[in-house]
Design a protein around this nucleic acid. Sequence first.
DNA 1: TCTTTCACTTA
DNA 2: GTAAGTGAAAG
Length: 520
Amino acid sequence: MADTEEAYGMPDTPVEPEPKELQCEPKQDNQMGASSKTPTSPQAAFTQQVREVIHIYVHEEMYAFKFYKRMTELLIKRAGRRMFPSYKVKVTGLNPKTKYILLMDIVPADDHRYKFADNKWSVTGKAEPAMPGRLYVHPDSPATGAHWMRQLVSFQKLKLTNNHLDPFGHIILNSMHKYQPRLHIVKADENNGFGSKNTAFCTHVFSETAFIAVTSYQNHKITQLKIENNPFAKGFRGSDDMELHRMSRMQSKEYPVVPRSTVRQKVSSNHSPFSQETRNITGSSTLNSQYQCENGVSSTSQDLLPTSNAYPSLPHESGPIYHCTKRKGKHVRLTEHSYKKPYMDTSPSEEDPYYRSGYPQPSSSSSSTTSFRTESAQRQACMYASSAPATEPVPSLEDISCNSWSSVPSYSSCTVGGGMQPMERLPYQHFSAHFTSSSLMPRLSNHAGTQPSDSHSMFQHQSSHQAIVRQCNPQSGLQQSSALQPTEFLYPHSVPRTISPHQYHSVHGVSMVPDWNENS
DNA sequence: TCTTTCACTTA
DNA sequence: GTAAGTGAAAG
């Protein structure tokens, strides 16, 4: 994207908070009814309209709008690094009594590799093969709508890593690549298996939160913004005294010369035009306008989303291969860490099919039914990716542990109900999981039977500069997502997505009932 | 570019 | 006091 102007230009005037609202009105996907076994007849399902309208507001604490407006950078470390600013959303419109699962994933925003030179980001080549997609299930999931709406939902514990073999469930990214976080809301119902045919879900994408993953900050202005706003980075904030102290300390350590970067940062700090604004932004959360995505109305979301071309139907022959077995030894060592326990409880690494084989083992998947809410520790979200190469034959529905998600860069997609439409293999690489379940986020496609060839276009929306409300109106045809593919989840660039054992269990109970208003 | 280490911070 | 999250800097 190389948004040279946006990414680097730092406006002199404070940027007002631009809370984004995402409105989602999940409805029965009647179109899909034909091909799937729904709890009710297609007509009945259709009549079970979802009356609920869900609004998602990106909390301004993602003052981020400042960061993101200039294409922020997020550090990724081998051991995992939190996102800062963290992804926080305010959710309204949920049924207080219905349980929902909130998930986040981060998908490639385009197919480019970037470089930062001359104070600007620019494309430098083709992207590396996408990493296996991982889902971050919010630790509170599943929880009632009341719970989610009670306060801001923070994904601050989500961690990013550049370790392709990460055993902790962190989201794996490639450095110098652009990514787009997505939020998913899945209706949960303990009485129904996760991913059953009528899964109700919404996908929300705030293009403003796109970022470039880096192992070290490239744009020092971004660095300064973070230093000024991240409490943990206080030590780098630049009072003259502190700076002198630091320099003194460094020199005392036989650093004969004050690093240029130190001086540069200092200068930047003193002149940062955003330090104050960002602070102001963090506190407020006002919605100005809505960004609606309804009824097939094709809107100008392209500017926000990666263009449909951004998700080329790449064969990904060299797609991410995630062979956990290669790091089995390492994994074992890591299991000693207490924080690894959450997923170890249900699936010891030695026996975890995920680690046994790079490819999901059909039978191993759904054996465990442990709720991941049984322990607080399990609230630590973990996800695991599959290692199925792009060329791997698509497993049968029974064999697929998890599901393939729509690779469509949906800015907002809401779907209720499910269809068992056969999926096209291309351009999406199938995504296989280790735990059998039906789809959490069924693939979205046009009306049943239609080709998803240009599925990107299905996600239409209108944008507002001040705020965004994304609405999905399946009732009106759900142009954004009409066809469900419960058995697979597809992601952009054919990124396979999987969830960890315990997470799978946690989301196992997704209601397939199309009526979001029903009490669970 | 990436990894490790460091000093510093918050919780 | 401890654990964990920061960016800087060196290697």
